[in-house]
């Protein structure tokens, strides 16, 4: 299936990105080219092969539930692009 500009815009929204028309056109061509290359995997029969998310077969790694010092709020807010009253500041989201 060919990657169209519409597909790019759909995926861009899921990715929280925006592209100009020209950029979307270019991205469509490049994604199409790369995804076509990836389709060579279809040459392999993987029926009954278990997918491997991770090479290390771990399930849960437990630790004791201990109270330890946390980061200082002002320290963490130093990197915030905008802040007010000890909180991150964002545009109003509830009318």
């Amino acid at each position: 299936m060919k990657v169209t500009k519409e597909t790019v815009n759909y995926v861009a929204n899921l990715s929280r990105l925006t592209f100009t028309d020209e950029e979307a056109e270019k991205m469509a061509g490049q994604m199409d080219h790369i995804l076509r290359y990836m389709e060579q995997l279809n040459k392999l029969d993987t029926t009954d092969v278990t997918p491997m998310e991770h090479v290390k077969p771990i399930s849960n790694v437990f630790r004791d539930d201990l109270v330890v010092p946390s980061y200082d709020r002002s320290e963490l807010l130093k990197n915030a692009p905008n802040q007010e009253n000890g909180a991150f500041k964002v545009p109003k989201i509830v009318e």
Binding site: V3, T7, V8, V11, A12, L14, S15, L17, M27, Q30, M31, I34, L35, M38, L41, N42, L44, T46, V49, T50, P51, M52, E53
Partner: peptide, 29 residues
């Protein structure tokens, strides 16, 4: 941005099995 787009595409509904799951199976091989 290209990697984010490719990654989102292969994880998106309808393409997950064909790309992402397939790649994880190939990883096993």
């Amino acid at each position: 941005k290209r990697r984010i787009m490719l990654g989102t595409y292969v994880l998106s509904s309808g393409y997950y099995d064909a790309y992402y799951k397939k790649a994880l199976q190939v990883r096993t091989l």
